[in-house]
């Protein structure tokens, strides 16, 4: 290429670079606008309201006070329920889901594996509302209690109990736990299991020393996904707990729509987001420690 051609090419490249930058900006503009108006702005409003006071007729009145945060213990029951039932639900999902994930990844025949895996995920993508409603149907007065009554065990109450909420939780979130564990178990080199067996390790020792540590990234991801979603749960306690077992989400609906105490509700919402952020950062640290990468893709 001659020097003359170079001289012509240089401004052309610069121009192309500039128009490329303009194109990038144009492509990003709509999503940036959306993120700003419907994510950053609303969260900022919640943050500002959380240091305000309730207007006499409900809503918000400008102020700068931390009283709402100091008052958080007034809704202690909601926090306590969420912070006990969410980890408990996560644990039950893990204990119930791990054997299934193990079966799918290690024991099932390759021919059926994909179909069986799809069958686990399908319920997760069908109507959440209807799946939770199914448990009202099952645990409600004319479901299992009626069956028990007919065989001579009267007056069993299942709906509107922590047990009912737990049924709904495990039912709704089990698929979300199985999938990431399956992914990490599937990548596990099966020869390691054989080697361990050959070296005289029992099934339990093999599981504890090889399978479990190698599936740790999947376990952590699954637990994180389930826990995060459970923290913000509203429908399951609302429908199956009947106002007796309520989560932070239920307290939020009550504060915003019933008692119209927006500032206090905002503080509760901020506390919920803060708990989740702490969890996520712990998760990121844990995955960095186990050397696992994120492989949570449900689709």
């Amino acid at each position: 290429m001659s020097a003359g051609a170079d001289a012509i090419a240089a401004p052309a490249t610069a121009q192309r670079k500039q128009s490329g930058r303009l194109l990038t900006a144009l492509l990003l503009a709509p999503s940036a606008l959306w993120f700003f108006v419907l994510l950053i702005l609303p969260l900022a409003v919640v943050l500002i309201y959380s240091v305000g006071v309730r207007a006499p007729a409900g809503g918000y009145q400008a102020a700068f006070t931390f009283d709402n945060y100091l008052n958080l213990p007034a809704r202690w029951t909601a926090f306590k329920n969420t912070l006990t039932l969410a980890p408990l639900g996560t644990l039950i999902c893990l204990l119930a889901g791990y054997p299934l994930a193990y079966f799918l990844a290690v024991k099932s025949s390759a021919r059926w594996r994909v179909l069986l895996l799809i069958l686990v995920i399908v319920p997760f993508w069908t109507s959440f509302l209807i799946r939770t409603y199914a448990w009202i149907f099952i645990l409600g007065g004319r479901g299992i209690p009626a069956l028990l009554d007919s065989i001579g065990i009267p007056d069993v109450r299942l709906i509107n109990t922590p047990f009912a909420v737990m049924c709904g939780i495990v039912y709704a979130y089990l698929p979300l736990m199985v999938f990431p564990i399956y992914v990490s178990l599937e990548k596990l080199d099966k020869r390691l299991l054989e080697a361990s067996e050959d070296l005289g390790a029992g099934p339990f020792a093999t599981f504890r020393q090889i399978t479990l540590p190698l599936s740790a990234p999947g376990i952590i991801t699954g637990c994180m996904l389930v826990f995060i979603l459970l923290m913000g749960e509203y429908l399951i306690p609302q429908m199956l707990g009947g106002g007796k077992v309520f989560f932070i989400g239920n307290a939020l609906v009550d504060l915003f729509l019933q008692s119209l105490n927006w500032p206090y509700g905002s503080a509760v919402a901020m506390a919920l987001v803060a708990i989740m952020l702490v969890t996520v950062s712990l998760y990121l640290r844990a995955t960095a420690a186990t050397g696992g990468r994120r492989d949570a893709s449900l689709i």
Partner: peptide, 10 residues
């Protein structure tokens, strides 16, 4: 990641 309920309220 932010729960639907917080997004809804905000």
């Amino acid at each position: 990641m932010v729960p639907g309920i917080v997004i809804g309220i905000a």
